[in-house]
Design a protein around this nucleic acid. Structure first.
Lengths: 223, 223
DNA sequence: CTGGATCCTCAACGATACTG
DNA sequence: CAGTATCGTTGAGGATCCAG
């Protein structure tokens, strides 16, 4: 049996052969947020070695989960990596894993960062298909460390994308304790008071924000 | 950052730190089927090195996902490993991964085996909460290679456990093409005809069996 | 006999330098 | 910018050994 295989006729074993490789889940997470250049991936995965990223992208391409295309602009060439439909079928499973992992997170560990993709993935999981805004569209910009994302509430849908938005209704800057706010442990007033959030814009939208984005606490604290 | 960590404050990264280790997903799959002794785990994970299994169990215990207790019977001591409630919270995520992986499985690859835990996990995922039997209880025994499981349909629930059952209503022995039957590609009559299943007992229950256990095909074939 | 620990080999990962 | 090449370090695989 090849080294990454498990020799079992089992769906989970097949999934583990792909996702059990170091960095692979996070690469797919980043690509499920949107197409990325090689250097974007490298920058969004602090600590990954460049040869490992190259090797993983090759494997994922061979597995039919990633495609790449050369793009030649005026300022040099670039290679765009994109998740395939088969990779998108993984989204529910990765979301479930992210929800499980988030349940025991409290504060960042020493040296941990929040990347754009982590923030987007986290907010998408937190939204979990909820949509409480039949009225007019609302746009949030969320910042956590150096990461920025924006969420658009439109009708019954929530869309979260990486990066800024030109006209947010509310800018939410996450501080220490923001996680508690999303868990419902901290209420909106206390969060503002303690610096768990800093708001710019229509602060009255925060209640709706916390009603939409929720990450539960797990009883068991292991981290 | 320690070697298995990713340095990101992200639920998926936390999950990957646990599940990204080789063999860990399959160890948890086995333990979610039921408590197991060290030697049971070793036997149910063909190819794992004994030191790797010992190391993983230690890590999982440190992460609060596994507990172990010494059990001294008359025929020597044994150590029972058990999934904790926190590990059981992983079940939906592992099910989603298993479903994703199973979608592109066709026939076993050269040398692949079906273990008891793989069969139970696969059937549980295939049942997916379905339950079509308001009438009397029905018990199936399912065999695939050396693996045996039994499923009990009771009211609106389906329970799948490893091993034999003393009084099955129908014994289903999986042959080549059994996967196609669960996908709906092969109908019941054709499956019996072609040897995809061999039945003992009330063969008329096969229709209900296939209505309960379903594993869809994914369009993209990569294996 | 079960539940590991030890030792050795080799493959994978990590860090960094270098190239088309 | 998008990788490849190289090399040191870590982890997995496999066999064996040991303790209760």
């Amino acid at each position: 049996m090849r080294s990454r295989e498990y020799g079992q006729f089992c769906g989970l074993a097949r999934a583990a052969e792909v996702l059990g490789q170091r960095w692979t889940m996070l690469i797919l997470r980043d690509l499920l947020v949107g197409p990325r250049r090689y250097s974007d991936l490298l920058a969004g995965l602090p600590g990954i070695a460049t040869n490992v990223l190259a090797a993983r992208l090759k494997e994922l391409e061979a597995d039919g989960l990633v495609t790449c295309e050369l793009q030649t602009g005026n300022s040099g060439r670039s290679v765009i990596y994109r998740a395939t439909p088969r990779a998108e079928e993984l989204a529910p499973a990765l979301d479930a894993l992210g929800r499980w992992g988030a349940a025991t997170m409290r504060e960042p560990r020493e040296g941990e960062v929040v990347t754009d993709a982590a923030l987007v993935a986290g907010l998408r999981v937190a939204a979990g298909g909820r949509a409480r805004r039949p009225g007019r569209d609302v746009v949030y910009v969320i910042r956590s460390g150096a990461a920025v994302a924006h969420a658009t509430m439109r009708g019954t849908t929530v869309e979260v994308e990486a990066g800024e938005h030109p006209e947010p209704d509310l800018v939410v800057v996450a501080g220490p304790g923001f996680r508690d706010l999303l868990a419902g442990v901290l209420d909106a007033d206390a969060a503002i008071e303690s610096g768990a959030v800093e708001l710019t814009g229509d602060a009255s939208l925060l209640t709706e924000f916390t009603a939409t984005f929720r990450v539960p606490y797990s009883e068991t604290v292991t981290f």
